[in-house]
Design a protein around this nucleic acid. Structure first.
Length: 497
RNA sequence: CGCGGGGUGGAGCAGUCUGGUCAGCUCGGAUGGCUCAUAACCAUCAGGUCGCAGGUUCAAAUCCUGCCCCCGCAACCA
């Protein structure tokens, strides 16, 4: 196995504000990256933004800006979120980057044997200068609600990419595991979807209908539609085709995507790669959505949760903890402020934070802070590593918490405070106490190691507390917060209420 | 008969492929213990016909058949 690994995240369309789903992408990729780096791998971790298209052009026009200036303002929000969740990315791509646009045109030319001209037919609105789906047309009764004009049936010339030519190869790759889709039920879902073959996709629009995008080489009348432009980012960001080094990282080990965009990443992207003669990514990690109290998060319902608010209130590691352990990596999850706060107070505060505190306090109190010969804990962490290899991060965190529990149990069983009392009379007690506390510290240090990918700040705090051989208090980890759940120790309000 | 996922103690889940050792885990609730600690921690308990009805088997949450209910997706929607 080589040392170089590559992981990617979906690039969000900058026409909008960052949300939990984006944060989840970054977090998952970041956990994986930190884990691999901890194990001595060289990792490139891509993030970026998708910045072309009509919606951007329209938004920019509304604000009286040219599109590029507009995206220059918008993409920063996403960059801020990436930094806020602690994403240790190495490569940031914007689809408006010069190198990317040039590379995409090169790719288009390489794809020539599989590109043909065809007619695209659909419902068109003059006011929007855009096509609408059958569904939208149906729900509005055929009248555009913004312009009060009927949609017209229009057909236009487009270039198509012959993705269908690669149906068998893609299917094969999925069946022999050359390209895995994780979890497996997503793979089955996708195979079912392409049962009748992958369909060709329209990859360009006439310039009059799509102004803001990469021009099609050799045809000034056509602009590239999203697919080739956006999907290509995964290789252009590495330097493809002209900057050396990209071969060291492609194929990607993992491509992190949401369940909504699986079909593009399994049905268009692999055919593009095959047409370019490039290997397929090894794994597509498909995560689910975050619901709120069982309901879909949506602006119209008004239940959107802002990741920034969580992090500002509870801290970055608390955010990373909840979204890595309580939102299953490979399935939908549920967020509520109550759940979050309960997990924060009980699991982070009571279980882990308090454990660190009590061990530190005992070493300080009984041994003036001097830690004895650290005993290396022999806890078998195979399940932790297996879980990460299987991309089930929530299970890996479960394993860490099993260790936290057993360390609390250990302390309860050996009762260091009783050994401490015996030291006056029993000469062996001193050594015994030192050994017990060193064992506890050893356990904490191992826990800290395991937490590095998930809670880097906490892992560092634990290390800093105990690593030097003398306890260096780092302050209380995860102090109690009661904003959404009742404070059990609050002065009793009037009875009955 | 479109496709996929799911229905397990108050809540959230594991277990189903490879039938018995499964009725398990976490949170919440109750009781007790302890005092090193963030009124934390530890132990015990709370008794859920494992969606419903049949079937296979010595034995089914776990296999087969039928049905009911919930949630996504249903193709150019970033």
């Amino acid at each position: 196995m080589g040392k170089n690994l590559y992981i990617t995240t979906a690039i969000p369309y900058v026409n909008g504000t960052p949300h939990i789903g984006n944060a989840l992408d970054y977090l998952i990729a970041d956990i994986w990256t930190r884990y691999q780096m901890q194990n001595g791998r060289q990792v490139r971790f891509q993030v970026g933004t998708d910045e072309h298209g009509n919606k951007i052009a329209a938004k920019a026009a509304e604000s009286g800006l040219d599109p590029k200036t507009y995206t220059d303002q918008m993409y920063v929000q996403f960059e801020q979120l990436m930094k806020k969740v602690g994403a240790s990315y190495t490569d940031f791509i914007r689809t408006t980057d010069g190198h990317h646009e040039g590379a995409v045109q090169y790719i288009w030319q390489q794809l020539q044997p599989y590109i043909y001209k065809g007619k695209y037919e659909g419902w068109y609105c003059q006011g929007h200068e855009a096509f609408f789906t059958d569904k939208e047309v149906e729900t509005t009764g055929g009248i555009c609600s913004d312009h009060q004009t009927p949609y017209e049936r229009v057909s236009e010339e487009n270039y198509y990419f012959k993705a269908s030519a690669f149906t068998d190869q893609v299917r094969e790759g999925l069946e022999n595991g050359k390209m895995k889709i994780v979890p497996d039920f997503r793979r089955k879902e996708f195979l079912e979807l392409i049962k009748d073959g992958i369909q060709d996709v329209s990859v360009s629009r006439p310039k009059k209908n799509l102004s803001w995008g990469v021009p099609v080489p050799g045809d000034p009348e056509q602009i590239m539609y999203v697919w080739i432009d956006a999907l290509a980012n995964y290789i252009t960001v590495l330097g493809y085709p002209d900057k050396p080094g990209w071969q060291d990282y492609w194929p990607a080990e993992v491509q992190v995507i949401g369940k909504d965009i699986l079909r593009f990443h399994a049905g268009i992207w692999p055919p593009m790669l095959l047409a370019l003669g490039l290997p397929l990514p090894k794994k597509l990690l498909v995560h689910g959505f975050v619901n709120v109290g069982g309901a879909k998060m949506s602006k119209s319902v008004g239940n959107v949760v802002d990741p920034n608010e969580i992090i500002d209130t509870y801290g970055l590691d608390a955010f990373r903890y909840f979204f890595s352990r309580h939102i299953p990596t490979l399935d939908d999850g549920d967020f509520t402020w109550e759940k979050f706060e309960t997990a924060y107070n009980t699991e982070l505060g009571n279980d882990l934070g308090n454990l660190v505190q009590r061990v530190g306090a005992m070493v300080t109190r009984y041994q003036a802070g001097v830690i004895g010969e650290a005993v290396q804990s022999e806890h078998d962490m195979r399940r932790y590593h297996d879980a990460i290899a299987n991309l089930e991060f929530n299970q890996a965190v479960d394993e860490v918490w099993a260790m936290v529990r057993s360390l609390n149990q250990y302390i309860e069983n050996v009762k260091p405070w009783e050994i401490a009392k015996k030291r006056e009379k029993d000469t062996e007690a001193e050594g015994h106490l030192t050994e017990v506390l060193a064992t506890a510290v050893g356990g904490l240090l191992q826990i800290a190691d395991l937490l590095v990918p998930f809670l880097p700040g906490t892992a560092k705090a634990i290390h800093d507390s105990f690593e030097t051989g003398v306890v260096v208090p780092q302050g209380v980890l995860f102090p109690k917060i009661y904003r959404h759940t009742p404070d059990p120790h609050a002065p009793k309000a009037a009875a009955g209420q």
